[in-house]
C-alpha cells in the first residue's frame, strides 16, 4: 500500500474518520493533565520564581507555530509537485491553528518578558522573525480568501509558504545564528546539562505532546471540513447548471 493512496479524498475521509476519535481522546488525556501538572504542581524556579509556569504554554505554542509552518511547507510542496488536493487543503486547514499558536507564543512571551527583561517587546532576532512569521500566516490566509479560483489560490499560497519558511527557520535558529538579543536558547535539549530540570521537563513534555495532538485533531477536522466544502461547491455548481 502506498502513502499516496491517502491523497484520494475518499480514502482520506474514511481513514481520518476512524483515527479522529482516538486522537481527540489522546489529546484530552495528555493536554489536560499536562496543564494541570504544570500550573498547580510545579515548584518555583530559583531564578524565575513562579513565572516558570508560563513555559508550559509558551514553549509548546512557539514550537507548534514553527512546526505547523513546516508542515504547511511540506504539504504545499506536495501540491506543487504532485497536485494532490488533500495536501494543499491540509495546509489551508493548518493555517488558522498556526496563527493562533503564533499569537499565543507572542503574547505569553511578551507578558513573561516584562517582569524578566523589563520590556514587553524588543527587536531581538528571534522575536522579530517570529513577528514576521505571524504576518506570513496572516498573508497566507488572506491570499486564500482573496482568490476565487481554488487551484490558483493553492499555487500562490504554496509559493508564499516556501518564502515564509525562511522566517520559520530563522525563528527557530535565530538565537544560534546571531547569538545576541534578549531571548535565551532552547529550553529543551538532548544535552542533559542544558535542558531544564526534570521537575519542569516532564510536565513540559506532556504539554508539548498535548499541543501536538491538539494540532493533529484540529487539522484533521478542518481538512475534512475543507474537503466537504469542495464537494458542496461542486454540487451547488451542478444545481445551478441544471437551473440554467
Amino acid at each position: 500500500m502506498s502513502l499516496w493512496e491517502f491523497a484520494n479524498p475518499v480514502k482520506f475521509m474514511a481513514l481520518s474518520g476512524k483515527v479522529l476519535p482516538w486522537v481527540v481522546g489522546l489529546t484530552v488525556l495528555t493536554l489536560v493533565p499536562g496543564m494541570i501538572w504544570g500550573f498547580f504542581f510545579t515548584p518555583e524556579a530559583a531564578n524565575f520564581g513562579n513565572s516558570v509556569k508560563i513555559i508550559y504554554i509558551h514553549v509548546p505554542s512557539a514550537m507548534m507555530a514553527i512546526n505547523i509552518w513546516v508542515m504547511m511547507l511540506v504539504t504545499s510542496l506536495i501540491w506543487i509537485v504532485r497536485r494532490h488536493h488533500v495536501s494543499v487543503r491540509a495546509a489551508k486547514a493548518a493555517a488558522l491553528i498556526g496563527v493562533t499558536m503564533t499569537v499565543i507564543a507572542l503574547i505569553t512571551g511578551a507578558i513573561w518578558g516584562e517582569p524578566m527583561w523589563g520590556t514587553y517587546w524588543a527587536w531581538d532576532p528571534r522575536l522579530t522573525s517570529f513577528l514576521i512569521l505571524f504576518l506570513f500566516y496572516l498573508g497566507y490566509m488572506a491570499l486564500w480568501a482573496a482568490i476565487e479560483n481554488p487551484d490558483t489560490a493553492a499555487d500562490l499560497t504554496s509559493v508564499l509558504c516556501i518564502v515564509g519558511s525562511v522566517f520559520a527557520l530563522l525563528s527557530r535558529y535565530a538565537v544560534n545564528f546571531w547569538n545576541q538579543g534578549l531571548h535565551q536558547g532552547a529550553s529543551l535539549s538532548m544535552d542533559k546539562e542544558e535542558h531544564v530540570a526534570d521537575v519542569y521537563y516532564l510536565p513540559l513534555l506532556l504539554c508539548i505532546a498535548g499541543f501536538i495532538l491538539l494540532f493533529v485533531a484540529l487539522v484533521l477536522i478542518r481538512t475534512r471540513t475543507e474537503l466537504r466544502l469542495v464537494r458542496l461547491h461542486r454540487l451547488e455548481i451542478r444545481e445551478r447548471m441544471k437551473d440554467v
Binding site: 513565572s51 504554554i57 505569553t108 516584562e114
Partner: peptide, 10 residues
C-alpha cells in the same frame, strides 16, 4: 498577574 493573564489568554 503575568501568570494568570498568560494562562487566561491562552
Amino acid at each position: 498577574d503575568a501568570i494568570l493573564s498568560s494562562w487566561g489568554i491562552t
